[in-house]
Each structure stands twice: as C-alpha cells, then as structure tokens.
C-alpha cells in the first residue's frame, strides 16, 4: 500500500518552496519568487501555510528601509519532506513493478 502523500507538500508551489529550502541554510522571499516563477500574492499565501504547519520559519526584518523576509526550513519541515520523498519512492517502486508485470 502507498503511504499517504502529505497534502501540504503535494502541491506545485509549496513543494517548490520546500525543495529550494531543503538544500540551503536560508533564502529570501525574492529568491524564492525568482526560482519558483510564482506571483507575490500566491507565494505569500503558500509560505504562510507552510509556516502555520511549522514546516518553515519566517523572519521579517529590514534592509535599506525595505522589508526583508527570510525563510528557513525547520526540523519538522525536513522530516515531512523526507517522508514525502519516501512516499513518492514507494509509489514509483510499485509502478515499476506494475510495468514489469
């Protein structure tokens, strides 16, 4: 049987954000904006959802009088991401076996 895919991660933009954050120490909002190609509004909403689930930490500060948002993945986020990847691997394994048969 498949492990259930975490609905919070099984979404294009949220998974993009988490995949970017898993490989770095921290990333700014503008970096995530550029790499994901999302709109500001949509990115803000999805970041808030990940923050509410405690998958990421969001720090607000200022740089040269402009607001600066920095995101970092939390240990809970890393665990959720790893579980999601495991579930995907299971899914792919089962699919491969089906193709063989």
């Amino acid at each position: 049987m498949f492990k259930d895919l975490d609905p919070l991660l099984h979404s294009q933009l949220r998974l993009q954000i988490m995949s970017l954050l898993i490989g770095v120490e921290s990333a700014e909002f503008t970096y995530l904006l550029e790499e994901t190609g999302a709109t500001r509004g949509n990115l803000s909403v999805q970041i808030s959802k990940l923050k509410d689930a405690e998958y990421i930490d969001v720090k607000k500060s200022f740089r040269k009088n402009y607001p600066l948002t920095t995101c970092t993945i939390t240990p809970k986020g890393v665990e959720a991401f790893e579980k999601y990847v495991e579930a995907l691997q299971d899914y792919l394994k089962v699919n491969k076996e089906k193709v063989k048969k």
Partner: peptide, 25 residues
Amino acid sequence: METTFTEQDGLKVITEMIENSRAKI
C-alpha cells in the same frame, strides 16, 4: 491546478528545485 498535480510532477519539482539551489554553490 493542484488537483492535477501527480506523483511524477512532485518528483520533477523536487529534482528541478534541488538542481537550482545546487547551482548557487
């Protein structure tokens, strides 16, 4: 859009994004 997001899409997104952040090194 989220409803049509498949497992393969998930894998593709992860690979692409990890490649992108790796390129920053």
